[in-house]
Write a protein that binds this DNA or RNA. Structure first.
Lengths: 201, 201
DNA sequence: TGCTTTATTGAACGGTGTTCAATAGTTTTA
DNA sequence: TAAAACTATTGAACACCGTTCAATAAAGCA
C-alpha cells in the first residue's frame, strides 16, 4: 500500500467516523437538535475538523438522507418475491408507512427537510431508485389489467402522494384533528380505504 | 372610554402591529429566514418588546398559522354554493391544491412546521374547522350514495392525506424525481387520477 | 407632589453554522 | 539529514439566533 493509498483510506475512515457520530446524535436527538458542535463532541474532535471532510452540515445530512433511502429500498426489495403485482403494491404501501412510523427521524430527513433536496437534484440517486421501484410495481399491475388508461408516472405520483400524505401528517403531528381515533388506527385504516379504491380501478 | 379601555385598545393595536410586521417579513423571506430581530426591525422596535406582547416566537407564528387556516377556510366556503356534493368535493380538492401553490409559506406553517402543533392541540380551533368542512362535504357525498360502507373519518383522513401528500411533495421540492413532467402537471393530473378513482367507489 | 404600574430598551447568555490563522505532524524534495 | 511543502487539526472569532432581564422612561393614581 502506497502512502497515497493509506492517506486515502485514512481520509475515508475519518469521514466514516464523522458520519457514524452524526448518525448517533441524529437518531438520539432528532434533526433539529443535532448541531455541528454536537457531532464534533460525540467523536471528540473540534468543530472545524468536520469542515475538512464535509462542505457543510447539509452534505453530512445528505449522506444520512441517502442512508434512509437505502434502508427503505432494502425493506421494499424484501417484497419482490410477492408474485402478484397488486398484492406486492399493497404490501409496499404498508411497508412504506411502517418505515415512516419506525424511522420517523429518517423519514423527516428523506421527505420533509428543506436542505436535502438541493444536494441531489441532478443525476441518478438512491431516492429516485426507491421511487422507480414503486413505479415498476405499479407498471406490473397495469400489465395485469389494473389501472387501465392511466399513465404510470401520474399514477405513481398520486399513490406516492397518498402514502406520503399519511406519513407526513403523522410525522408533523397533524393527526390530532381526528381526535376520536388513534394515530395508528387512522394511518392503518386510511391506507386500507385507499387500497379498497385502488382495487376498483 | 376609560383609561383601562384605551390601554386595552393600545395593547391590541401593538399586538396587531407586531403581527403585521411578522406577516410582512414572513411572506417576503419565508419561515426559516424570519427571526425575532427581523420582525422587530421591520416595525422599528427592540427585540425585547415582542416578548411583552407574545410569549415566544411560536405564539407569533401560531397567529399566522391560524390566519392561514382562516384564508383556506374562506376560499373553501366560496364553493359552498356548488349544489352537487361530489362536484363540491372535487372543487374543494382543487382549491386546496391551489391554495398550497399560491401560498407556499402559509401552507408550510399550517402543515409542515414542527412548532405550530403544540399551540393548538386542545380545544376547538380554526384548523379542525377547516378539516371539518372537508369532512362535512364528504359526508354529504355519502348521503348521496358515494363511498358506501366507509366511515367518514377514515375516508376524510385518506382524502386529506392525498391532497396533503401532493402539496407536501411540492412544498418540499420532492417532485423532481418525476423529471419528465412539470410540477404543475404532476399535481394537476395526479389529482385528476385520484378523483377518477373516487368516482368509482 | 410622590408612588406605582406599564411599556420599552439594549446588553447579555448560551446557542447556531461557518471561516480561518496558527500549529503540529507528515511527506517530499534537495 | 535538513529544509521545504503539504496535510490535518485546533479553537477563537464572526455574525447570526431566541430569550431574559435590569435599567429606564412614561403614564396613571394617590
Amino acid at each position: 500500500m502506497t502512502i497515497a493509498e493509506r492517506k486515502n483510506k485514512e481520509k475515508e475512515e475519518m469521514s466514516k467516523r464523522i458520519l457514524d457520530g452524526a448518525r448517533r446524535v441524529f437518531l438520539k436527538n432528532g434533526y433539529e437538535r443535532t448541531s455541528m458542535r454536537n457531532i464534533a463532541d460525540e467523536i471528540n474532535y473540534s468543530p472545524g475538523t468536520l469542515y475538512f471532510y464535509f462542505k457543510d452540515k447539509g452534505e453530512i445530512f445528505n449522506k444520512l438522507h441517502q442512508e434512509g433511502f437505502r434502508l427503505l429500498l432494502a425493506q421494499s426489495k424484501v417484497l419482490d418475491n410477492v408474485a402478484d403485482p397488486f398484492e406486492r403494491l399493497k404490501a409496499l404501501g404498508r411497508a412504506f408507512i411502517q418505515f415512516a412510523t419506525e424511522n420517523k427521524d429518517y423519514y423527516n430527513l428523506m421527505f420533509l427537510v428543506d436542505e436535502a433536496a438541493s444536494y441531489q437534484k441532478d443525476g441518478l440517486n438512491i431516492a429516485s431508485e426507491a421511487i422507480n421501484h414503486l413505479g415498476a410495481t405499479i407498471k406490473a399491475c397495469q400489465e395485469k389489467g389494473h389501472f387501465k388508461d392511466m399513465k404510470t408516472d401520474y399514477l405513481t405520483f398520486m399513490i406516492l402522494s397518498t402514502l406520503h400524505g399519511i406519513c407526513a401528517l403523522f410525522c408533523k403531528d397533524r393527526t390530532h384533528n381526528f381526535k376520536d381515533h388513534t394515530t395508528e388506527d387512522l394511518m392503518k385504516t386510511g391506507y386500507e380505504y385507499f387500497i379498497l379504491m385502488l382495487e376498483k380501478v
